[in-house]
Design a protein around this nucleic acid. Structure first.
Lengths: 230, 230
DNA sequence: TCTTGTTAGATTGTCGACAATCTGATTGTC
DNA sequence: GACAATCAGATTGTCGACAATCTAACAAGA
């Protein structure tokens, strides 16, 4: 008997596709923070009715990247320096925990996947595809969460990821030219393959630090300027 | 000039009320794990149309207490021993972090609120109102998250709380008579008022331990029995 | 008997229209 | 001119009906 592993078929509801479309638009920065989402306009553009669109928006509100005010509208979340700092500090704690849990579970498949994702980042870097670069870097980073064998932790990470991706995308948009250092993940991958768990945990912190420092500086610089409200 | 603090007015959409109703029904165990939510029936019972009900359900799916399968239905999540264990271990990590962050922020208002919530737990215990007992105990526990001044951490805790409340409610339903020890929170409150941060962190772990141990034992006993599927 | 095709019923997904609410401009009054 | 009342337009919230899909029961054939 041949045993084949089938993965679940794709969600074929309009709602699911709308969620994916909207999320992508937000996370890549096509929709700016604070921007209002006009239901009628978007539903016409997507050629769907407002019902599935509204349901999709409700999901993204709960996911934390949209915010809704009854009878006023649904908006892309505003990003403050504090939000980034909050996400950053929580991320550090979660990372430490994820590495601790993943550590004894590492095996060949883990290392393979680690290399695969690392390669994806390097490819995106070569292609100068900054959006994909952010995406793949977060996927590389997310591997420890997938292997930590803790569903609640994984969910938490996925929620956090949404925001991180949004933050970094905004950052990237701001300084269009510059491409990040060619291989900041080399050490991270090497340590995850090594034998010193604590060293890996320590590096994870510092590695994030580098990215976030710049991000925070950018966010703070934005908030220095007063908004254009007269 | 008199300065009055106004709290935001209540959400006056049906959707918000439906969310509250459904959440309460799930967290108190009125709706059992795995149970299917029939949209037509519920909408008729609540005297609302399916649109706001469906939007409300979408929110609860994202909140993690409902799960949805396209064209099949929306169900109350199933609770496994592993789920509880996952939530428990993550909770430990978050607690440690929350206490660390709250520690320097403690002031008179914090201590007042701590006493107030502690009192609420004791009151619910005297009233033998187990549902409210769980609710107030979690609110007492949530104080450190509200004072940690980290919005992402707070959101994460609130998501976790939903599940914890559900787990404990299920547990309570199983052993109807027994009321938990009269004041397991005395030490917790005292330590949070004290000067030894690490001692508080240590106790938070162990205190949770007690509750969870029993909970886990119960969940595991459930899974020992094979389900009634022939 | 097992498998496959069909069908009816129930349930979810989607749609278009109406009701409730907000916003901003306009008008009238002091 | 300043301020409150009114109104029109736009937008969100809700409704009832229709379309798409699933489930289970039944029939037909190997």
């Amino acid at each position: 008997m041949v045993k084949t592993d089938f993965s679940p078929i794709a969600d074929t509801t309009r709602r699911a596709e709308i969620v994916a479309l909207l999320r992508r638009a937000i996370l890549t920065g096509q929709l700016e923070p604070g921007q209002k989402l006009n239901e009628l306009r978007i539903s016409e553009q997507m050629r769907v009715s407002r019902a599935p669109l509204r349901e999709a928006m409700r999901e993204l509100v709960q996911e934390g990247i949209l915010t809704s005010i009854p009878y006023a509208g649904t908006f892309v979340i505003d990003v403050t320096a504090k939000d980034i700092d909050d996400a950053y500090s929580l991320n550090k704690v979660l990372d430490e925990f994820a590495i601790e849990r993943t550590w004894p579970q590492r095996d060949l498949r883990f290392f393979d996947e680690l290399d695969r994702r690392h390669e994806a980042v390097k490819q995106a870097t070569r292609d100068l595809d900054t959006t994909r670069q952010i995406e793949t870097a977060l996927q590389l980073h997310g591997l420890i969460y997938e292997w930590a064998d803790n569903s609640v932790l994984l969910e938490t990470w996925q929620r956090l990821t949404s925001r991180l991706q949004m933050y970094f995308a905004l950052h990237q948009q701001a300084r269009k030219e510059a491409v990040p250092a060619e291989d900041v993940h080399e050490t991270y991958v090497r340590l995850l393959k090594g034998t010193d768990c604590q060293a890996a945990q320590r590096h994870a912190r510092e590695h994030i630090d580098l990215d976030f420092e710049e991000l925070l500086a950018y966010a703070r610089s934005l908030e220095q300027r007063p908004s254009k409200g007269a």
